[in-house]
Design a protein around this nucleic acid. Structure first.
Ligand code: ZN
Ligand code: ZN
Ligand code: ZN
Ligand code: ZN
Lengths: 130, 130
DNA sequence: TTTCTAATGTTATATTATTACATAATGTTA
DNA sequence: TAACATTATGTAATAATATAACATTAGAAA
């Protein structure tokens, strides 16, 4: 069972936009595109984004300061994310590899410490750009 | 053989500061702390940081917009980085695990694609904060 | 109802990073 | 050496990203 089943109006507006997009969106691009829906200020966007990230509906691509919808149904929470990023066309794809998830979830550092969360960003050239 | 053996004055000033620091430093914190050495503008700091990242002397912690000196002697280039980050005290440690490096360097996505570069950030609680 | 919590609206501001352009230093080749 | 290319620097202005503060509202819970 999830913490929050229904999204609020602002959260839904932002999520709809991010889900429709084929590429990661930046906060101010989102703002610009939802102004016709009544969202007026950056903070309204950032608050919606924060919540959507928290519940795993979207992810932040840290190296790009941009947000992408989660297309991995198992990814209910933003605690284990991996992406591939094309350095030419900036195409971003969420990686869902059971092997990778398992490896990273079980990874222990020198002190034998395990981590509750990770974010991995791979960089390279996509098929088109090679 | 490396591309650039000697650092320029600004690069050396910034590197000295970042290396002395026990925690990741933000660009404007660096600026504040090097003003007595003659560096006056953000751009001077960002240019030095860009170069130092490029040659692998420092790394950017993307989720924190902060910079840390590389303590991994094998890490001459910023192409394969992994960090652990404590979510309470914000302590950041560079992970150097041969197993992890090897696994990620050889990781192939669904399409059999390998990547030339990656950055991994683990989150959790450090020893002190548990 | 009362109380508590989460979300919203709004303004202002803080923080992070880049553009643009002029100049200087350094390296390379003829 | 001169000529040229490349890299780094200095400086001002501005763009892009993100948060603080505070008042208000909506919903859930008791
Ligand atoms: Zn996901
Ligand atoms: Zn591409
Ligand atoms: Zn390193
Ligand atoms: Zn800690």
């Amino acid at each position: 069972m999830q913490k929050q089943q229904y999204l609020t109006k602002n959260q839904q507006i932002v999520l709809d936009l991010v889900e429709k997009s084929s590429e990661p969106l930046k906060a101010y691009t989102i703002l610009f595109n939802v102004q016709k829906k009544g969202i007026k200020a950056p903070l309204q966007v950032y608050r919606a984004l924060d919540k959507l990230v928290e519940i795993g509906k979207i992810h932040k691509i840290e190296s790009r300061n941009a947000f992408i919808a989660c297309h991995n149904s198992s990814c209910q929470v933003a605690k284990a994310t991996a992406f591939s990023i094309c350095e030419i066309c900036e195409k971003v794809t969420e990686i869902s590899s059971a092997g990778l998830s398992k490896y990273l979830a079980n990874f222990k550092d020198k002190d034998g410490m395990k981590y509750s969360k990770y974010n991995l960003e791979f960089f390279g050239l996509c098929k088109k750009c090679r």
